[in-house]
Nucleic acid binder design. Structure first.
Length: 852
RNA sequence: GCGGGCGUGAUGGAAUGGUAGACAUACCAGACUUAAAAUCUGUUGGGCGUAUGCCCGUGUGGGUUCGACUCCCACCGCCCGCACCA
C-alpha cells in the first residue's frame, strides 16, 4: 500500500497539466466561454493565506466550469505600481522597479505550487511599459471624448517635507515622517468625469443580480442620489445672494443660521482683510483631507457678521457662519442649519449659543428639542408647527415634496437632484506610477502627447532618498518637444492613481499582448468576467471605477456595448485570520506588548503559555494576519509540510467563503488527515479482492446526494457546505460493505467531486482507479434523480412549537391520515390528557404542530 | 461622524419561517500496540431525574407567528469602507 506523498503527487500532476497546456485559453466559438477572475495582487513579495483563499475559490469555479464543458479563461497578473515600492526604496535603498519585479518573480514561484488552473501565458504587470503605454493611449482617447479634465483640488501637504502626502501617510493629523501638522493645499489636477455617469451607474446597479446586495447598497449610498431644494438667501447688505442646497427644505422654518464652507468663495473673499478670520480658516485647513477626519474634527464656527433674509419672511434675519464641517465639494458649499432636526447642527448651535426652533414634533411624545435632535425616518408621520404650506400631520417626505412644490410655484427655489459622487482625481505627485501623457508648452498650454510617442516611459535613473517626486528633479526627463508646435516643452510629472491601472486590467487579459488596449474579437468573445472574486474592501472604489472605465472604453470603441457592466457576477470573500498570542506577564523595554509566534506557545492544563518561560499568554482569536503581531502563517511553509491540496482544502472548509476563516494548526492537520484517509480508501479499493458481492444501495444514495449537494455548493459559493458533504460521503464510503467494484465507482466519483478543491490528489486517484485521461477533462458527474427520492419521511411532532416525538410516514401520505396518526400517537395522547387540540398544523413532508 | 456587515456548544461553523448544533476541531472512553504515534469505534449544548422524561438554550430586551437563529423595533459588542493604501 502506497502512502500519500503530497509533494510527489503535486509536482507530477502540475507537470502533466503544463505539458498538455490544459489551462491555456484559446478562443473557441464552438464552446461556451467562462471568464473567472480573482482580484489581482499587489506584488508585496510574499504570498499570504488571503491570496491562497482567494485564488483557491476562483480555481474551484474555473475547474468546475472546465468539467462542465466550458472554455475557461482564468488569468493572473500584478497590480504593480504604488507606494510600497517607493517606501521600500526609501527605507532599504534600491529601485522600485527592481524591488517590484523581483517580488513578482518570488510570488509567481510561490503561486505555482498551488496548482492553480491559471493561463500563465497571459500574465502581465501594470508596471510593464506594454501595459501602461496602452493605458496612456486610453487616457488620450478619454481626453478626446471629454472624459478627462483639469481643475483644482485639495491635497494633504506636509509643510516640513514640502511634499504631498497620501491619506495613509497622515497619522493623527501629522506627516508620518516629519511629524509636522498636515495642511490642506490646492493643486491643479486631472479628473475623470465619473460624476456625469452618476445616474447611469446608479440605475445599472439594478441589473447586477449576481452581485451581493450589500455591495450594491454600498455603491448606491456612495453615489448618493438625493432630491432637494436649491434656493438663495438674499444678503441684507445687498451683495450677491448665498445659494444653498438642502435635502430637508421642510425644516426651513427651523432655520437657525446659514453656514458656509471654509473653502467657500465668500470665506476666501473675507479672509483677505480680516486676520482673525484668516487664522480661523488656517485652523480649519489643518488636518487631513479624508471625510472621516473632517466629520470627526471638533466643530468650529466663525460668525462672519453677514446676515441674510429668510425667504419666507423678509423680516427674519439669519446670521452667516463659517463652519468647518461643511464640504465645498457637495451641493453648493453652503447650507442652512436646522438644529432641532440635525444633531450636528444642534451641537453647533449649543456651542455657539444660536437659537433652536422646532418645526415638527413626535405625534406620540410631543416635546421640544433640548440636547438631542428629533430626527425621525422620513416616512414617519409627525405633528407640524405653524407650517407655511398648512401642513398639520404629515410625513417628512410629504413635507419635503410640498415644500419643493411651494417654492417652485412661488418662484424662489427649485427642486434639484444631486449626487454625492465626486469626479475621480487621478493625479499623483509620485514616481512609481503611469506617467500622464501630456506636455506643458509655454505657447500651446497643456498638449496631449502623440500616440506614436507612447509609451512615455518612466526614467530608471532616479533617487528616492529625499521627499517629493523624483520626476520633478530629474535633470532631463521632463524635456521634450511640444507635440503641437515643436518648441521645447516640459512633460507633466504627475503619474496616475493606481486605481486607473486596476480599472481595465480585466479587459486587457482578453488580449494581453495586443498593440492596442484591446482587440475587438477577443473582447467580444471573452468579456464579460463571468465570476469576479475579491475582498469586500473593494466594494466601492475599485468596482465603481471599473464600471466607469468599461463605459468610457465602450465610448472610445475599446469594449462592446455589452461590456459596460464588466462583471456579471461578484463574490466578496472574507479574510484568513489567525490567533494572536500576547504575553500577559510582561512588555518589552519600551512598554510595548510582546507577541509570540504560534510555535513559541503551547497549552498546559487549559492555559496557553510560552514554552520556554511558562509565562501566561493572552489569546486574541481571529485577528487579521499582521507581521507586527507575529501571527502570519506562510503558505509556503504549509505547502512544504502538508502540500497544496491540504492548504486548499482547509481554506475552503471551515467557514462560509464570505466570512473570515481562522487559520488553526489543528484545522490544517485535520485537512491533511482527511486527504490521507481518502488516499488510503482509494489504495485499499485496489488492493482488496472482489469482496462482498452485495450492492450497497445506501452508499449509492449517499453518492447521488453528494453529487447533488457538492454541485449546488460549488455553484452557490457554499464551498464549506460542499466539503461537509464530502466528509459525509467519505464516512459512508469508509463504512460501506459494498463490493470492491461498487466502491471503486463511488471512490472515482468522490475524486471527481473533490477535484476542484484538491486537484492533484484527485488526478492521482483517478489514475489509480483506471480513469481515462485527466480528471480535469472528465465530465462532471450528474446525480440520478431517482436515487434522491426517499420513500418515507420522518415527521417531527411538535406540541406548542416544541418537538416531542416523531413519526415515519410514506412521503405522499394525505394530510388527513397524518392527522389521524398524530392524534393516535402515544406522546400526543399523554399530553392532551383527553382534551381536544385547539389547532393541528400539518406541513406535508415537513412538520406537525399540535396546539393545545 | 456617515455608510455597510457580523454575533449560534469548549472551537470553526450547519439550518427555503418548520426536529437548533449537520460536518469538522477539541475533549473523554474503548479497540489495536510492549508503548507511543497513526488508524478504527463510540460519547459529548447546559441543568434536573434511576428512568419513560422535564426545564433552559442561537449577543441583550421587546414584537409578529401555530412555530423565529431566520422577519420587525430598540440596544450592546466586534469588523470593513469613507474618495491619495492596494
Amino acid at each position: 500500500m502506497s502512502r500519500y506523498t503530497a509533494a510527489e503527487i503535486e509536482s507530477k500532476w502540475q507537470q502533466a497539466w503544463t505539458r498538455s497546456e490544459t489551462f491555456k485559453a484559446v478562443r473557441d466559438v464552438s464552446k461556451p466561454k467562462y471568464y473567472v477572475l480573482e482580484m489581482f495582487p499587489y506584488p508585496s513579495g510574499k504570498l499570504h493565506m488571503g491570496h491562497v483563499r482567494n485564488y483557491t475559490m476562483g480555481d474551484v469555479i474555473a475547474r468546475y466550469k472546465m468539467s462542465t464543458g466550458h472554455n475557461v479563461l482564468h488569468p493572473m497578473g500584478f497590480d504593480a505600481f504604488g507606494m510600497p515600492a517607493e517606501n521600500a526604496a526609501m527605507a532599504i535603498g534600491g529601485h522600485p522597479k527592481e524591488w517590484t519585479y523581483s517580488n513578482i518573480d518570488t510570488m509567481v514561484e510561490q503561486m505555482k505550487p498551488l496548482g492553480l488552473s491559471l493561463d500563465w501565458s497571459r500574465m502581465f504587470a501594470t508596471c510593464d511599459p506594454e501595459y501602461y503605454g496602452q493605458q496612456q493611449s486610453l487616457f488620450l482617447d478619454f481626453l478626446d471624448e471629454g472624459l478627462v479634465y483639469r481643475k483644482n483640488a485639495v491635497v494633504n501637504w506636509d509643510p516640513v517635507d514640502m511634499t504631498v502626502l497620501a491619506n495613509e501617510q497622515v497619522e493623527g493629523g501629522r506627516g508620518w515622517r516629519s511629524g509636522a501638522l498636515v495642511e490642506r493645499r490646492e493643486l491643479t489636477q486631472w479628473f475623470f468625469k465619473i460624476s456625469d455617469y452618476s445616474e447611469e451607474l446608479l440605475d445599472a446597479l439594478e441589473t447586477l443580480d449576481n452581485w451581493p446586495a450589500k455591495v450594491r447598497l454600498m455603491q448606491e449610498n456612495w453615489i448618493g442620489k438625493s432630491r432637494g431644494l436649491q434656493f438663495s438667501f438674499e444678503r441684507t447688505d445687498g451683495a450677491d445672494p448665498i445659494e444653498v442646497y438642502t435635502t430637508r427644505p421642510d425644516t426651513l422654518m427651523g432655520a437657525s443660521f446659514v453656514g458656509i464652507s471654509p473653502d467657500h468663495p465668500i470665506a476666501k473673499e473675507l479672509e483677505a482683510d480680516n486676520s482673525e478670520l484668516a487664522d480661523f480658516l488656517a485652523e480649519c485647513r489643518k488636518g487631513g483631507t479624508t471625510e472621516e477626519a473632517i466629520e470627526t474634527a471638533p466643530k468650529l464656527g466663525y460668525d462672519t457678521g453677514i446676515t441674510v433674509k429668510h425667504p419666507l419672511n423678509p423680516d427674519w434675519e439669519l446670521p452667516v457662519w463659517i463652519a468647518n464641517f461643511i464640504l465645498m465639494d457637495y451641493g453648493t458649499g453652503a447650507i442652512f442649519a436646522c438644529p432641532a432636526h440635525d444633531q450636528r447642527d444642534l451641537d453647533f448651535c449649543r456651542k455657539y449659543d444660536l437659537p433652536v426652533v422646532d418645526t415638527f414634533l413626535d405625534l406620540d411624545a410631543p416635546k421640544p428639542v433640548e440636547n438631542e435632535a428629533f430626527v425621525p425616518p422620513k416616512e414617519q408621520k409627525v405633528k407640524w408647527i405653524n407650517h407655511f404650506a398648512g401642513l398639520d400631520e404629515a410625513t417628512g417626505q410629504d413635507a419635503i415634496d410640498a415644500t419643493i412644490d411651494f417654492a417652485e410655484k412661488a418662484g424662489w427655489g427649485q427642486g434639484v437632484t444631486k449626487f454625492r459622487l465626486r469626479d475621480w482625481g487621478l493625479s499623483r505627485q509620485r514616481y512609481w506610477g503611469c506617467p500622464i501623457p501630456v506636455v506643458h508648452c509655454d505657447a500651446c498650454g497643456v498638449v496631449p502627447e502623440k500616440k506614436e510617442n507612447l509609451p512615455i516611459e518612466l526614467p530608471d535613473d532616479v533617487t528616492l532618498d529625499v521627499p517629493g517626486n523624483p520626476l520633478d528633479r530629474h535633470p532631463t526627463w521632463r524635456d521634450c518637444a511640444c507635440p503641437s508646435c515643436g518648441a521645447p516643452a516640459k512633460r507633466e510629472t504627475d503619474t496616475m492613481d493606481t486605481f486607473v491601472d486596476s480599472s481595465w486590467y480585466f479587459a486587457r487579459f482578453t488580449a494581453p499582448r495586443a498593440t492596442t488596449p484591446t482587440v475587438a474579437e477577443d473582447a467580444a468573445y471573452w468579456m464579460n468576467v463571468d465570476q469576479y472574486i475579491g475582498g469586500i474592501e473593494h466594494a466601492i472604489l475599485h468596482l465603481l471605477y471599473s464600471r466607469f472605465f468599461a463605459r468610457a472604453m465602450h465610448i472610445c470603441g475599446h469594449l462592446p456595448e455589452t461590456a459596460k457592466e464588466p462583471f456579471d457576477a461578484l463574490f466578496t470573500q472574507g479574510m484568513v485570520t489567525h490567533a494572536i498570542f500576547k504575553n500577559a506577564e510582561r512588555t518589552d523595554e519600551n512598554g510595548r506588548a510582546i507577541y509570540h509566534y504560534p510555535a513559541e506557545v503551547e497549552e498546559r492544563d487549559g492555559v496557553t503559555v510560552v514554552k520556554e518561560t511558562g509565562e501566561k499568554v493572552d489569546v486574541i482569536p481571529s485577528a487579521k494576519m499582521s507581521k507586527s503581531k507575529n501571527n502570519v502563517v506562510d503558505p509556503v511553509d504549509i505547502i512544504t509540510s502538508y502540500g497544496a491540496d491540504t492548504a486548499r482544502w482547509f481554506v475552503l472548509s471551515d467557514s462560509p467563503p464570505e466570512r473570515d476563516v481562522e487559520w488553526t494548526a489543528s484545522g490544517a492537520e485535520a485537512a491533511f488527515k482527511h486527504l490521507n484517509r481518502v488516499h488510503r480508501i482509494a489504495t485499499d479499493v485496489i488492493a482488496s479482492d472482489a469482496g462482498n458481492p452485495n450492492e450497497d444501495e445506501a452508499l449509492l444514495r449517499e453518492m447521488h446526494k453528494a453529487i447533488r449537494d457538492v454541485t449546488l455548493g460549488v455553484e452557490s459559493f457554499g464551498f464549506n457546505a460542499s466539503i461537509a458533504k464530502l466528509y459525509a460521503f467519505t464516512n459512508a464510503l469508509a463504512k460501506s460493505k459494498a463490493s470492491s467494484a461498487a466502491k471503486r465507482d463511488a471512490t472515482r466519483v468522490l475524486a471527481q467531486l473533490m477535484s476542484p478543491m484538491t486537484p492533484h490528489l484527485s488526478e492521482e486517484i483517478w489514475q489509480l482507479l483506471g480513469g481515462e485521461g485527466l480528471i480535469i477533462n472528465a465530465p462532471w458527474p450528474v446525480a440520478d434523480e431517482a436515487m434522491l427520492v426517499e420513500a418515507s419521511v420522518t415527521l417531527p411532532i411538535q406540541i406548542n412549537g416544541k418537538r416531542r416525538a416523531e413519526i415515519s410516514v410514506p412521503k405522499d401520505m394525505p394530510k388527513e391520515e397524518v392527522e389521524k396518526l398524530v392524534l393516535a400517537h402515544e406522546a400526543v395522547i399523554r399530553t392532551l390528557d383527553g382534551a381536544q387540540p385547539k389547532k393541528l398544523i400539518v406541513v406535508p413532508g415537513r412538520i406537525v404542530n399540535v396546539v393545545i
